[in-house]
Amino acid sequence: MRRANVVSGVVLGLLSLLMLFAVIPAQIDPGPDGIVSPRLVPSMTMILVAALSVLLVVNNMRAPEPGAPEASLPFTRAELAALLKIGAVFALALGLYFLVSPLAAGAGLVVGALLALGERRPVVIVLMPAVLLLALWLLFYKVLGTAIV
């Protein structure tokens, strides 16, 4: 975790400086005279993040105690793979939303997630999106009497 803390401290420190000197001045007008600037609180939070990031890096850069092992990475390969798979499933669903319809996006999301997580039984892959979408339709359009889209 020590190395991860140093890396995250550096990244957050750089991000806060980018926000302070580029994004906040470009995205927030200084505001009229005589009132508290709209930039004040966002800038204060980023100054705080910058200072705390330095503290995080310095604390974790101190030499580890003799004999202490370097901890393993905080992420496992399976977790990162799952992040990529679920990201891809959402990308597919968004594509279907824009190109086909919201219904296709919902079905695509369920089918894509099932396939990405290792489900291969055709009955489950067909029935599950059908049942879930039917249940949602019943809940919103019949029980609650409203439309989703």
Binding site: I86, A113, E119
Partner: peptide, 8 residues
Amino acid sequence: LIIPGVLL
């Protein structure tokens, strides 16, 4: 089987 439903 649970995760796809929750994501939806």
